[in-house]
Nucleic acid binder design. Structure first.
Lengths: 232, 232
DNA sequence: ATCCATAATAAGTATGTACATATTCTGTCA
DNA sequence: TGACAGAATATGTACATACTTATTATGGAT
């Protein structure tokens, strides 16, 4: 007997395994937490913790009173870490460089307004800058900042610190959204990145918010060869 | 008085706010869970839950005995959902189509072996297939499957069901890794996708495992215009 | 000083209990 | 039949307590 007490990871793995083994198929309902707890001879809280984890990873769905079901449409859910550009370059062993290209204030184009959820033609700060690794172009950023939310940035010397870094340190977001695409570099972009016109580049567009106020929307154009990594 | 009991979300938000407000700076140590619990007049378990969430979202780091620290290098951590291709197309209102291009068994090239962690020149199943939305090319997949782990797939009629779908239903992974890049389509790829040679396309490479055994490694070449979305 | 066993510590986990909350189910009345 | 109030129910949350585990601090022996 004895049989060491089950941890929530054990419970999670058992249930996961049962789903994989086909005991519960997509759409099937799983027993109540309380029943599973009794079966496995552990506390309901332990089952709850396990279930929460499975739910987070996209394998099951839980609804109060509705119970727990195996998700009908399996999704592969991965986590993407996007570090500060300077740190990313330094971790890879490179020397970080930064160059401000332009800094203007103007009415935002329609696409940007829409993405940030700004209805009026509010004037935004636009910053273009180049991040370099060992002197070679690494990332070209085209950023729009909402001075309503971050008025102090208008006083910052963006030749010295990138808007990227200043914002992270001074206006931490509460949430953000990402859009990842592949595009052909236009002449201007290609020029800054030092690549051929039309080269395929990875573009990461990120819009960040503090609660419900949009702070900034940035288009990061990565130099060719960049790889974005994610994992479970 | 009174003041409704604090929920773990309340605790999380309070601590988050304090970090944003600069009360604790990157690298700073936060008080022990027990002390915070006493301060806020709630149970330690509630603080623990809040801290776990902040830790998951990449804002803080926790170590036993070491305590809790604000992360020195803030990372933007996003969640990426990759649905089954068929469901993705159908959810977008398209009609799903599928066409097998080739199916062979051969020794895996070096790059694939390396990615899957196969030391010997094991023979793998290679499948090329095209997924269509409303008859138009949507995704070209170039897949390698390890028949050691999934021998049954050798008997499956891949003209009828895509390897993608069969594997998800019959050999669910326990973990996977992703690599996202932008590339110029080569002639063969461009031909299948019906686009111009050299067009910029988004390429998602995914290698999946059951515990420590590699099941499959797939290169998904997305038709131009595809957007990969992620959020916090 | 340096190494190493040991103590101290802070987060992590498990449990039982109680109550909260979101849904679904059900039975009644129109 | 249909609408709706209220009961039933499964998950979600909070708490006190006890124990576990990883890691750091320490103190003594060499």
């Amino acid at each position: 007997m004895a049989a060491r007490r089950l941890s929530w990871r054990d419970v999670r793995d058992r249930i996961h395994a049962q789903i994989l083994a086909g005991r519960y198929e997509p759409g099937d309902k799983l027993p109540r937490d309380a029943d599973i707890a009794e079966d496995l001879n552990c506390a309901r809280a332990t089952v709850q913790r396990a279930m929460q984890d499975l739910s987070d990873s996209g394998l099951i769905e839980r609804r109060r009173k509705g119970g727990t079901h195996v998700r009908r449409d399996p999704v592969a859910r991965a986590t993407l870490d996007i570090p500060l550009t300077r740190r990313e370059i330094e971790e890879a062993g490179g020397t970080y460089g930064y160059r401000l290209i332009s800094r203007t204030q103007r009415a935002a184009p329609r696409a940007i307004r829409q993405r940030m959820g700004l209805s009026e033609a509010a004037r935004l700060l636009r910053v273009e800058a180049l991040h370099l690794s060992d002197g070679r172009p690494f990332l070209l950023e085209d950023r729009w900042v909402n001075p309503e939310v971050a008025p102090e940035i208008l006083e910052v010397d963006l030749d010295v610190i990138s808007a990227n870094e200043w914002l992270v340190l001074n206006k931490p977001y509460t949430r953000f959204g990402l859009e990842i695409t592949a595009e052909a570099a236009d002449a201007r972009t290609a020029g800054h990145l030092g690549i051929g016109d039309g080269t395929a580049i990875l573009v990461v567009e990120r819009t960040t918010w503090i609660d419900d106020s949009p702070i900034t929307s940035v288009r990061a154009m990565m130099a060719p060869g960049y790889r974005l990594l994610a994992e479970t």
